[in-house]
Structure formats: C-alpha cells, structure tokens
C-alpha cells in the first residue's frame, strides 16, 4: 500500500494531494447494493408469485423462510432480520444513488430538456430509473417497515387481506411498476457499466442485453400483476374474516401454536 508514493514520485506527481479513495468505494458500493437488491427483487417476485401455484405452495415458501422446515418451528423474526438487511441495503443504495440525481432546479431543467431533445433510449431509461428510484424512497420504506415490524403477517390470507381490505393494494401496484422498471434498467446498466457479457462484439451484446432486459421486465410485470390479482382474489373471498390465518389442512400441529 505504501509503495504508491514511490510510484507517483517517479512520474512527477508526488507533490499532489492524493485523491480520496471514497469515490471508488462508493461507486462500487452503489453497484453492489444495486445488484443485490435487483437479484433480491427477482427472487422476491418468484416467492410471492408462488400463490399462483396455490395457497399451500405460498404457505410452504413462507414457512420455509421462517425456518419451520429446518428448525421445526416457524420464527417470523428471521424474516424481520432479512428485511432489516434489505432495508439497510436500500438505504445505502439510495444514499449513494442520490449523488447522481440533479442537485438543483437548474440541473433538473437541463436534464429534462436534454432527455427530450436527444430522444436517446438509454438516456430516457436513466430518467425512468431516477424517477422510480425517487418513488421507491417512500414506497419501499413503507413496505419494508411494515414487513419488518409484522413479519408474521405473511401468508395467503394475511397478504390477500392487506391488498383487498388493508389499503395496501394501490401501494403494491405502484411499487410493482416502480421496482420492476428500476431494477430491470438497473441490472442492464450494471452490465454495460462494468463491461459484463461484452463478448466479441460489444455492440451486439448490448443489443441482446437490452432485449433481455425488456423481456425480463415484461415477464416480471406480468407475473407481478397475476400475483397481485391472485392475492386480491383471496382477499375478496375472505373479506369478512378479519385476521384469518391460512394453514394447510395437512399441517398438524399448527406451527405458530407450537412457537408460543
């Protein structure tokens, strides 16, 4: 580490103040948190969409994450911990990404005009990413806080009730759109930013990545909407049974009971 002074002395840069290492760390951290969140988002989507395979499937996945199949008892607290970690990632990511936002009205105006004039796809996509990111400051915070505080409220009935009767529906549907666009674009950008999957012909690879990005976005949006409808339907069906908890008929005894 301390050989650097010699190195720069050799080319006449020794008298300069050394540049901070933080920009490099922050740039890397922004990308890594983004990557983690993007992959989490996809995984999360798959897990919640298990409802499309039936209430039992969703129940099983939920209980799996609560440790039931390993520990023999469900600990929703595990979910709280995971959510807390994700929340932390979101906060770090948002903090770092904020550096890239327009810093004042002048910059905001300039970028809006620039985007409109250029009509350049990747520039427009960045703007979409920035706007959705901004939305997620709030949407994700609310959702994550709720999940962290009430980890036990995940299940076919509880989730359905939240959407139909609990007033969370609008938030979820906006967040679905925001998250899928933000994450999809973000993952595509990560690839071109760091030069992943460049291949022999980077221009062709970029085109393929872009296509893949749109396909995945479309897929996850479709999956998301279907999942949303499925939960809403359940919520509608149990609209009169406040606080109902679904437990598959084949499960004996009730895992929650045992935890108590």
């Amino acid at each position: 580490m301390d050989s650097t002074p010699n190195v720069i002395a050799g080319v006449g840069l020794a008298d300069r103040p050394r540049k901070s290492r933080w920009p490099a760390r922050m740039d890397l951290a922004q990308s890594l948190t983004g990557l983690a969140l993007g992959l989490f988002m996809w995984g999360h989507m798959f897990f919640v969409s298990s409802i499309l395979l039936g209430k039992d499937a969703m129940w099983t996945i939920t209980k799996f994450f609560e440790g039931y199949f390993v520990l023999g008892t469900a600990y929703p607290g595990i979910v709280s911990v995971v959510v807390a970690v994700v929340f932390a990632l979101v906060i770090v990511h948002a903090f770092l990404a904020m550096r890239k936002f327009p810093a004042n009205y002048q910059q905001y105006r300039t970028f809006i005009g620039h985007r409109k004039l250029m009509a350049h796809e990747d520039t427009t996509l960045w703007w979409v990413q920035a706007l959705t990111g901004f939305l997620l400051f709030f949407l994700a915070a609310v959702h994550l806080y709720q999940m962290m505080m009430h980890p036990g409220d995940i299940g076919p009935y509880q989730s359905g009730e939240r959407i139909w009767s609990g007033g969370w529906g609008p938030l979820y549907i906006i967040m679905l759109l925001a998250v899928e666009f933000h994450g999809g674009i973000g993952l595509y950008r990560l690839a071109v930013k760091w030069g992943w999957f460049e291949g022999k012909d980077p221009n062709a690879s970029r085109k393929r990545l872009k296509t893949l990005k749109w396909v995945l976005t479309a897929f996850f949006l479709a999956l998301g909407v279907a999942t949303f409808v499925a939960y809403a339907k359940i919520g509608y069906q149990i609209r009169d049974q406040k606080g109902a908890v679904y437990t598959p008929s084949w499960v004996v005894p009730n895992p929650m009971e045992k935890a108590k």
Binding site: L13, K19, P23, A24, D122, T123, R189
Partner: peptide, 18 residues
C-alpha cells in the same frame, strides 16, 4: 486514479452511453 478517480472522472459516468 489521481486524474480520474472521482465523480468528475470515471465515477461520474452514469453509463447512459449516449
């Protein structure tokens, strides 16, 4: 790094690729 290792340099790039 002394020349481009900051947000005015390579880390300022947002990969819009225009």
């Amino acid at each position: 790094y002394e020349l481009v290792g900051d947000d005015n340099g390579v880390f300022g790039c947002m990969s819009l690729l225009a």
